[in-house]
Amino acid sequence: MKNWMFLTIAIFGEVVATTALKSTNGFTKLGPSLVVLVGYGIAFYFLSLSLKSIPVGIAYAVWAGLGIALVTLIAWGVYGQKLDAWGFVGIGFIVSGVAILNLLSKTSVH
Rank of each mutant, 00 (worst) to 15 (best):
G80A: 06
I11R: 06
F46C: 01
L103S: 06
G97H: 12
L51K: 00
V95H: 04
P32I: 08
I68W: 00
I9Q: 00
A99V: 15
I9F: 02
I11K: 03
K22Q: 09
F6A: 08
G67D: 04
L70W: 07
M1H: 11
K22L: 00
Y45G: 06
F27W: 07
L103F: 15
L73G: 12
L21Q: 11
M1V: 13
V62A: 04
N3G: 04
A69G: 10
F46D: 01
V35Q: 03
I68E: 06
L49V: 05
A17Y: 02
S50K: 07
Y45T: 10
F6E: 05
A20Y: 02
N102G: 07
V36M: 03
G92R: 12
S50Y: 06
G57N: 13
S33N: 07
L47W: 00
M1S: 15
F93Y: 05
G92C: 06
I42N: 02
T18A: 08
T19V: 11
N25A: 08
L49H: 04
V16H: 06
V71W: 05
S105P: 11
M1A: 14
L34N: 05
S33H: 01
K106L: 08
G87W: 09
L30W: 08
T18G: 04
L47K: 08
W86M: 09
L73W: 05
G90L: 11
H110R: 13
V56L: 13
G92S: 05
S23P: 12
K29W: 01
N25I: 06
A43T: 08
I74V: 13
I9Y: 01
A99K: 09
A43Q: 09
L51Y: 01
G80Q: 09
G77L: 13
V71A: 10
M5N: 12
K29V: 14
V89E: 12
Y60L: 02
A43S: 14
Y79G: 07
V62I: 13
P55V: 03
Y79S: 01
T28G: 13
L70H: 13
F93W: 12
K29L: 13
N102K: 15
A99D: 08
I100L: 15
T19G: 02
Y40D: 05
G80N: 04
L21M: 14
L103K: 06
A69W: 04
Y40F: 10
G80P: 02
I9G: 04
S108F: 09
L30K: 08
Y79Q: 08
A59G: 03
G57P: 14
A20I: 00
L37C: 08
A69N: 10
A85F: 11
T8G: 09
W63C: 04
F46E: 00
F93K: 10
L51M: 11
M5H: 12
L66E: 03
N102H: 04
K52E: 15
H110K: 09
L104R: 14
G57L: 12
V71M: 09
L37V: 10
A99W: 15
G39W: 03
S108A: 15
S33W: 01
S96P: 12
F46M: 08
A75M: 04
G57M: 09
F88Y: 14
L51W: 07
Q81K: 01
G77S: 13
I91V: 14
W76C: 10
V71R: 00
F12D: 02
